[in-house]
Design a protein around this nucleic acid. Structure first.
Lengths: 216, 216
DNA sequence: AGATTTACATTCATGTCTGTATGTAAATCT
DNA sequence: AGATTTACATACAGACATGAATGTAAATCT
């Protein structure tokens, strides 16, 4: 076949990654043959094997192409707890709005077996997780320094808790039927989680409304 | 081959389930052939197909045989928040001690693709999840009635939060290397999570141990 | 402009898994 | 005790999937 220019080749590669994501999210990683992906992308397996060593390599490309779901806003001025809350809300919002993100996370959390060559992908995910925890721990430290939280708060532990909550939340969100006020429930849960970090005065309340009540 | 007595047949069935669990947890569900499981169990595929319709059916048997990891203690007398905390701690304790539980959950959370026939297993998991949420919500309601929590606490939302935390926790626990004080960290996290539910007076304190030192 | 490399397509060799059909001897039923 | 069912083992057919080997025409390099 006629050789393509570099730009065209890059386009082909990207098409393969996109189709891989889509087919993976429908059929699961193991049940998807490279032939099927190639078909969908309008190429042959030769092209796939040219761009990627094997299926695990391609899957890693899918995940890299999507990037991370959670983007911690770090405007240094604003309330760190508020920033965290907004970031978490943004994550589930992106799951709703961006097919790419939803498909990729569906595959990673429900339709992939982390075995053999795929163990490396899991390691990759855990590395991202550690970064998450570090970043969130910093936010909690800031919040603690600004006396927004209890002075007893352990930022590292709190970050681990938030990470576990986040991980479980995304996975469950993807498994729950879209009806039935899913959005409100999860948003409420996030707000509640953050509110729980605040000093007693703010317990159980969102950022929008403050109580006049004092702790007993 | 000589026909077996009913008791023997049940034993064969159980052996198949156990071997399936073990092989699944090593190789992942999709990469495991029924032939391999049969071998491990000292039978042929014929036996497997006799006892189970297909691989998904066998997998469901594995999961049923293991039961649920979390067992909510419901002694009606004691502090509901304490009961919840103990139950959660017990769950990770069982992951450490019981090979069966650990293997099954490793398979369910990291080594299975919920696609096709396996969607039903996912539905099963979500049903268990809903039960979890209902039960925990009841506990929170009790706690609220006993004025152990803020009067603003929404039991259903709180239960959802605990469920997400629990789900993420188990999954991450299984992915983290056993070294490095994993146990203490996760135990601390659980205690902190429950402590966060308590009224201001109890903030930051666990039921089991008071904080060791103060941080500036 | 010629040499080389690239970006694939095509072909092949091999292995593996599934589901079903059929066989069979002993346990269980009547 | 004879009929029937059970609990498997064996055998078969069809379908795919993988990875490597090879071909090739145009893009890129020198």
């Amino acid at each position: 076949m006629a050789r393509k220019t570099k730009a065209e080749a890059e386009l082909t590669r990207h098409r393969i990654v996109e189709c891989a994501r889509e087919v993976f999210s429908k059929e699961g990683v193991t049940n998807t043959s490279l032939e099927r992906i190639a078909q969908e992308a309008g190429v042959t397996r030769g092209a796939v094997y040219w761009h990627f060593r094997d299926k695990a390599d391609l899957f890693m490309a899918v995940r890299t192409d999507t990037g991370t779901l959670l983007r911690l806003s770090n405007e240094p001025g604003r309330d760190p707890l508020h920033r965290l809350e907004v970031s978490l809300l943004d994550a589930i919002h992106r799951l709703e709005e961006e097919d790419k993100a939803r498909q990729t996370y569906e595959v990673m959390l429900w339709k992939c077996e982390y075995v053999g060559e795929f163990s490396s992908v899991r390691d990759d995910l855990m590395t991202i997780g550690r970064t998450f925890i570090e970043d969130v721990a910093k936010l909690y430290s800031e919040a603690k320094a600004a006396q927004l939280t209890s002075p007893d708060l352990d930022p590292a532990l709190a970050a681990l808790e938030t990470f576990c909550l986040y991980s479980g939340m995304i996975k469950i969100w993807l498994a729950v039927t879209p009806e039935s006020g899913r959005r409100e429930q999860f948003a409420g849960m996030i707000s509640q989680h953050i509110a729980g970090r605040r000093l007693a005065a703010g317990r159980g309340l969102t950022l929008l409304a403050r109580p006049h009540k004092k702790k007993s």
